[in-house]
Each structure stands twice: as C-alpha cells, then as structure tokens.
Design a protein around this nucleic acid. Structure first.
Lengths: 304, 304
DNA sequence: TTCCTGTGATGCCGCGTGAGTATCAGTTCC
DNA sequence: GGAACTGATACTCACGCGGCATCACAGGAA
C-alpha cells in the first residue's frame, strides 16, 4: 500500500534535527532526546532525503549547520514552540482561564448591572475576552435558543423554552422628562398626567410583549399615549428626551447618572414593570468560559 | 523501552484532524487523505487523548467542532501552511533564488565596481539579500581563509593561500589635492613634487604591504613623505583632503565624482599601483547564492 | 412497523518502520 | 600505535499504523 502523505517528514524529524543543531553533537543530542545515537543519525538522514537538502555537515571535528539547515531551523523554531504550547493552552481553555464569551445586552442592562459584572469578571478572569453587542430581546431569544448566542441580558415577556434564566432586576418604571417640561415641577406623576406628552419608545418589534403592556397600562389609566419616536438603541432614546422631543420610561436604577437637561419622576398608581434577566442556552452544558461568566453575573446580582 | 517524546502527537494527527474539521465528515476526509475511515477515526481519537480535550462532537447527523477544536485549528493552520511551504523554500535556497551573501569591500571597491555589480545582481536575483560591510584587506583575508566571510573586495599585496581571487582593477594612483593647494595648478605631478605636502593615508595595519610600497615609491623618488593622518574608512580620508588637511592617493576610476574643493592629478614617473580583486574561499564549493554573486561580479568586471 | 442506507467506532491482523544493540570507519589525540 | 572519540551502518525486534470486516446506532422510505 503506497503511503500517501502531505508531509514527507514528521514532527520527530524536526525535533531531532533541532536538537542536533543545538548541540552540534549526535551522541549528546541522542541522550537528551532519550533515544540511541543510530536512530538519531537515521532520522536526520531521512529528513535530509525528504527535503532533498543537506542540513548538516558532518566533519570529524564536529557537526556544522549548512545554510539550508539554518533556514530550516529559523522556520521550524517558532512552529515547534507553538506546538509545544498547545496542550497547556487547551487545558487553559478547558479550565476557563482563557476563551471568549459572546454576550448580548439591552440598554437597561448596560445602564445598571453590566458594568459592575464586567469589572468583576475581568478581575477574576483576565484571559477571557467578552464580546459584547447590544441587541433587542426579540433578537436575543431565538439566538439563545439556536445556540448562536451564549449569553444575553434581556427582558422576557413570555416563557422562553430552551433558555435558562435568572432574574436580575424587577422594577416599576418611572418617567424621564426634559427639565423644561411643565410636568417636571411635580415630584411624582400618574400615567393619566401624560396624555398630552409625546413619548419616545423602542420599536415594537424589539419586544412586542413589553410594548403592549405599556400601551395597556396607559389604556387602563384612560389615556392613549402619543408615540412620537421609536428609536434604538436605548441611549438614543434618552438623547431625544434630552433634546426635548418627548418623555420616555425608565427604571430608578437606570436613572442614576443623568445629564442636567432631563429629570426622572416616579409614577404613582399603575406603571409598566421592567424585568431584566440573564439567560443562557439550556440545551448544552455551558463551556468553562461561559460558566465562569454566569457565576460572576449571578453572584453579582444576588449581592445587590 | 519507554517512548519519551516531547510531543504527544505527530504531524499526521494534526493533518488528519484538520481534514475532518474541514469536511465535517470522517469518510470523505479519509478518502481525501487516501486512508481508510477507521484509521482516521483512531488517529483523531488519539489526538484527543493526547491533548486531553474533546475536539469534535460526533453526532448522528454529522460532526461539529468544539471550542477546543476551533482553538486547535486556529493554531495549527498557520503552522501546517508554513511546513508545507518548507520544501519549496529549501529548493529555492539550493537553486539560488533566495538566500543571502555576506560581502566585504574597501572604499575603492565602493567607489568603482561595486555599485554597478549590486545593481546588476539585484536585477537578476531579487530574492538574495546582500549584507555589505566595509572592512580593510587585513581583516578580509583571514576572514575569507577561515570561512567567516563568503566574499570580499580587497587589495592583495602578497599571496593569499586558500583564497580564490579575480583581478577587477589595476591602476596607477594619482594624487587628490585640495583645489586651493599650490600644486593644484599643475596638470600632472611627480612624487618628488610632494615632499612638502602632508599626506592622508589609511592605517598601516589595514594593508601593510601596500602601505610600504607607497613609502618605497617615495623613497625611490628621493622623498620622505609626511603622513599627517591615518584614517579609515576611505570616505573620511577624502573628507580630510577636502577640508584642506593634506593630499591622498587615488586611482582615476575612483576620481569620477568629486566635490569641487578637491582635484585629481595623475602622476608622472613612479607611482604606487592599486590592485582590486574579488576573493572567495577556495576551501569549499561556493553555495548557490555566492556562486550567483560571483558570476555577476566577474562578468561585470570583464565587460569593462 | 421493517428494511435500507449511511454515520462513526471497534476488533483483529499483517507489515512497515522506528529504535534497539553491536559494530564499523574514520579522526585526533597522547 | 593504540585509545578514545566521532557519526554511519547492519542487523533484529516489536510497536503501531493502516488495512478489512463488522458493529451500533440513527434517519428515512415503504
């Protein structure tokens, strides 16, 4: 059976040759490699045949490396180093010391729990890279179910089969108004006060359940709100409020650091409620990097 | 006998795994690799054992690569590519398409034949790098004899055993004077005219034979020259003449491009003669890169 | 259901080949 | 002229790669 093979040599040959080139001495190199000298001689000779090049000059007063041998050495040195590092690297991956996690989030998550979680996580796991991308609940849920996404911070509004979740935040929304707005004088508001105020919301497709709960909250207060803009991501909505184009909903946690042009007012009576969860695929056991992230995230949440 | 070996796997394993990861199909990968499927299954299993990591998820509906497998792929892909390129690279080295030559030269060589040789050589052999360093004859000759230097342009003054040479230039020296010098009015000079003129020469150790021939040429003209400076490299000597510190010897070929502050005058009667040769070690057959360089250099010289 | 097809894994065996020991061929010493 | 090196060569042996045959299992079609 003819032996077809892409490489006319094996790692052995390269390692053996490198050792001889280092020590310039077959016997000592063989000892270092824990093989007998004849085996080493033949392996190097095979490599020379395979590459059709003289790699070493055997003289009676020692061995010297030919130009071809030097070129080969230059090329294989980094390769062998890289290969030698591989097992440890894979162990590090398995142990969760290195790796990466793709994490999606919504504006609320970034404004509340996420910065703290990331800070803690990077302190404990400096080798794991977190790939963050803001995306709406309606995108995250199917991505989590299909396994395209490892982990997401989102706002569930219906059962999410195939996703394991943990509640991070559950808060009644208040209202964010331009400071110049008439209602900004009041300490607290009711939904019914807001009939004349244009609203800035997220696009309905991004979380239809929550969107509709907002509308029904208005309806039960006897008001039909005017939705002036639907904008995403979240930061742009706050920007529009700041620019005086309307009001928006916001939770108290989210209202920590606000520019002076806007003000947060709690709602009395019925108010839409936001729930922020962290979710991950329930199909497969999470990998070590994801497990580490989840551990930090849930611990950080329960410590609040 | 225990098999001690730095790597718990071989190139085979990596190539086999890569092929399966590419095709996500053991049977087709085995066909591509021209081996039977069971052999492939076992090789991949061995690699997984060796690295203590699951690289592939075998499901009934196909094969998928695990994160560890992806990491491994990322790492080995460039390595395998580099190794695959090795044989061709070594052949190119042997064929003289790539490589490098260490070449030493003296100031005279750089002022005459060398630029043209380098231009021609790089045109015909773009893959070969030339490492140039100016060094005196007295340094080049032993370096050529010991094999530390591949090729040199120098000025032999005695037999140089172990070095093969070819004469490139053989010229009577003239005199380089500051234009302001009294003798610069004359069209040609004799050595005996130069008794009162301070001279700038190279250090005697750099070529004792030639140095002494200069002195004896003076002596036979009945003159004892005043050696004001001994300076190296050559360009600095010309700089000193330009600065008015004295005169120096120079061949007509070297006197092609001179600054206006200096002038070249031929010598009538006895004059020191400069011989420029290219030399290379006669011990070993020159390597392909050196052979190519020598071919260009000698051809360029005989075409003058 | 039942059979067929196709997946990758497993059992077993022959032979190639890597590595062992013993030895050779050529030096460079004393 | 031997002693003590060097690396190369000649054997033998056994490990393991790869071959074939087969298994276990899943999915699809009848």
């Amino acid at each position: 059976m003819p032996r077809e093979y892409q490489f006319p040599f094996e790692l052995r040959h390269l390692v053996y040759f490198r050792e001889v080139a280092r020590q310039l001495h077959f016997r000592r190199a063989a000892e270092t490699l824990a093989i007998a000298q004849p085996a080493l001689s033949r392996a190097v000779a095979q490599l020379e045949t395979a590459l059709d090049a003289d790699l070493l000059n055997r003289t009676r007063r020692g061995v010297e490396v030919t130009p071809a041998g030097r070129l080969l050495l230059e090329r294989i040195e980094p390769l062998l180093r890289g290969l030698a590092a591989l097992p440890a690297e894979l162990q590090a991956l398995a142990g969760g010391q290195i790796g990466h996690v793709r994490v999606a989030f919504t504006g609320l998550a970034m404004a509340t729990v996420l910065p703290r979680i990331l800070r803690e996580f990077h302190r404990g796991h400096p080798g794991i890279r977190v790939e963050l991308s803001e995306s709406p609940t309606s995108v995250q849920v199917p991505a989590l179910q299909s396994g395209d996404l490892a982990c997401g911070f989102f706002h569930p509004d219906a059962p999410t089969p195939g996703i394991r979740t943990r509640l991070l935040l559950r808060e009644r929304n208040g209202v964010l108004l331009p400071t110049a707005h008439a209602l900004a004088q009041r300490a607290a508001l009711r939904l019914s006060d807001l009939a004349a105020t244009p609203f800035v919301l997220f696009p309905r497709t991004h979380n239809p359940g929550f969107y509709d709960r907002i509308l029904s909250a208005f309806a039960s207060a006897g008001v039909t709100p005017r939705i002036a803009e639907e904008v995403w991501p979240r930061a742009n909505g706050i920007g529009l409020v700041r620019a005086g184009l309307g009001a928006t909903f916001m939770t108290p946690s989210e209202a920590q650091h606000l520019p002076p042009e806007v003000g947060f007012r709690p709602l009395r009576g019925p108010a839409p409620e936001s729930r922020l969860v962290i979710g991950w695929s329930g199909a497969a056991e999470p990998g070590p990097a994801l497990a580490a992230f989840l551990a930090v995230a849930t611990a950080s949440a329960s410590r609040r």
